[in-house]
Design a protein around this nucleic acid. Structure first.
Length: 269
DNA sequence: CTGACGATC
DNA sequence: GATCGTCAG
């Protein structure tokens, strides 16, 4: 056996060794890694995660969130809605489950029972229909806020459908959404889940030629007004919530885009 | 699409 | 408690 043959054999052993180790990692530790949130970038896009005012960011496969224990709900839920996520599958709605990843304990769905309020999704089930797992994962109590039914099924639903329309038109959007949480809100249930007076949604699109943003601030009530009447600047949402959105962007670009309340770059069809 | 709720085992 | 069917915005 000459030197060349030996080197070749060693190279083959190294390659197979690495592959075998990778394979072992994927099979044995993938679930754990996902659980720890280290794989979140593959599933959402951690580049765009906002800051947390509560220091309790949790990553799921289909979305990330920042949980506010005093309000027993998320202050924001963030996820990427890719064009490829848009699907027409119709999964059966599962039961809501307490999110065990929330260390301080997420609210029980019983708080909403006969409260007069919907369990309103923040990351909509309709945005996660590309797989049964992703769909069912939206039914965690860390992903819901108390919403009036005429709001949830009305203008909020219309906005969620508009987001899906934009995800298709602009090859995906990144979404951050939640209720405006503050002291003194009305609460429901034994755990005192706060009922927000406003809900917001902030979008960024980096998939088309020019990065663009749009933000909505909706009063928590039924409305028949057109959606564009609720457009505000991202700065407005930041001042209201204390959350810093898209802070990883170049400062000049971030400042310019977040100060704008123009919606001319977004098609309202 | 977004949901609640009563009947049933 | 889990499932199924019905109903409503």
């Amino acid at each position: 056996m000459n030197k060349k043959t030996i080197y070749t054999l060693i190279a083959i052993l190294i390659v197979f060794g690495i592959y075998g180790y990778e394979f072992f990692l994927k099979e044995e530790e993938k679930a754990e890694v996902v659980e720890a949130g280290k794989d979140v970038k593959n599933n959402t896009n951690e580049y765009f995660l906002p800051t947390s005012t509560t220091s309790q960011i949790t990553h799921h496969e289909g979305y990330s969130l920042s949980y506010s224990e005093p309000h027993e709900q998320a202050e924001w839920v963030a996820y990427e809605l890719k064009k490829s996520h848009l699907a027409k599958t119709n999964f059966k709605r599962p039961y809501f489950e307490i999110d065990k990843a929330i260390k301080t304990g997420a609210a029980h769905w019983r708080n909403y029972k006969k409260s007069g309020y919907d369990r309103g999704h923040l990351c909509p089930a309709g945005d996660r229909r590309y797989s049964q797992f992703a769909h069912d994962e939206t039914f965690l109590t860390s992903n819901i806020s108390p919403q009036r039914h005429d709001f949830n099924s009305g203008i909020w639903n219309a906005l969620e459908q508009k987001v899906r329309y934009w995800a298709g038109k602009y090859d995906g959007v990144f979404v951050v959404t939640g209720g405006v949480l503050k002291h003194g809100l009305k609460t429901i249930g034994e755990e005192n889940v706060a009922v927000p007076n406003e809900f917001y949604k902030v979008l960024i699109d980096t998939n088309t030629d020019k990065t663009k943003m749009i933000a909505f601030l909706l009063p928590h009530k039924k409305s028949n007004k057109p959606l564009y009447e609720f457009v505000v600047s991202v700065d407005t949402i930041e001042k209201l919530t204390g959350i810093d959105f898209f802070h990883e962007l170049d400062d000049a670009l971030e400042n310019k885009l977040e100060a704008s309340s123009s919606y001319k770059a977004w098609s309202f069809q």
